[in-house]
Write a protein that binds this DNA or RNA. Sequence first.
DNA 1: CGCCTGAAGTAGACAGTGGCCACATAAGTG
DNA 2: CACTTATGTGGCCACTGTCTACTTCAGGCG
Lengths: 179, 179
Amino acid sequence: MATYHHGDLRTAVLAAAGKLIEKEGLGGLSVREAARRAGVSHNAPYRHFPDRDALLAALAAQGFSQLGKALEGRSGRELGEAYVRFALGHPQRFRLMFGGQLALDRYPELRTQAEATHGRLTAAFAGLGAEAKFAAAAAWSLVHGLAQLILDGHFENDEGFVTKVIGAIRFAVGPQRSA
Amino acid sequence: MATYHHGDLRTAVLAAAGKLIEKEGLGGLSVREAARRAGVSHNAPYRHFPDRDALLAALAAQGFSQLGKALEGRSGRELGEAYVRFALGHPQRFRLMFGGQLALDRYPELRTQAEATHGRLTAAFAGLGAEAKFAAAAAWSLVHGLAQLILDGHFENDEGFVTKVIGAIRFAVGPQRSA
DNA sequence: CGCCTGAAGTAGACAGTGGCCACATAAGTG
DNA sequence: CACTTATGTGGCCACTGTCTACTTCAGGCG
């Protein structure tokens, strides 16, 4: 059997929790169950996360990082589609990231990761003058809301639909020649 | 003191739960606490709601109904602003409505109320031909995402900001003469 | 080499929760 | 009045997050 000391429990717990969340939903994730899956006593995770919320925050931060990678190098409507695709591919993770139960202020890493993603979004709208900020915000809002509403079952989950919705808008001070 | 039978426990529990949720957040709401506030034993609510989720679903349905009223008679960007204002005014309720922990299929009233709201949104885009559906979806997505991202602290909570973001887009096949 | 300090993991306890059960009470109905 | 049925009570169970005290081990220092 393995050693008494696990070696990399933090990672193991995160992985277990990640699987749990995606299978059982956010409510189905308990620290104890994650510990069980990692083959460790119910209390061990507390050596690595001060409390349950901290574990959630770590999962969310991980999610932001993944989302960042998924958006890398894309722009225009391709970027939007990638955003939605990520949300639909990792629904529970996405919910966790934007569920609002995590106080952004309390978990610095979370904030950092989130802002990195934010930056990626706004970067795609650079060079549009003063209005760029609002256009970027609108773009993010659009794809974010779209993803959320599909996840909630208010819209059909269909690739073509997403494309058409994203295509249905133009930016007031925008790049008509977007990719 | 009051009678053994409460009279309208269902309403009382809903009210108590509503206050709780807005004060403590979604996690702070327990059936038992709601029962306490309603001055009734821990189990009484279960006569009116099969389980905790059903209580949440009822709260959410209520929320959709309120949202519906808030949107009544409005159109164009005024409608969008009203949507966001509702979300910012009842943040926890809004989160509950769109948090995704409620299986829309399992609670018919929820679905009904949600679709009524949906209808109100799309109605504002009637008469735009085949593309209307997508424009309406885009509009809903935009304001929904905007609200959510503000609630999460990713955007500033500012009336002027909202107006400008909403103003930053045009619809491909849209009503240039919107209110 | 052996000790020993501190990090990592374990074991047990506690209050609070959702949800089940059997029982008590009230309100209508014949 | 008797009886049925909705409504509310109290006790119970498994489970959870989190606290406190104990155990095991790894690495540095003599």
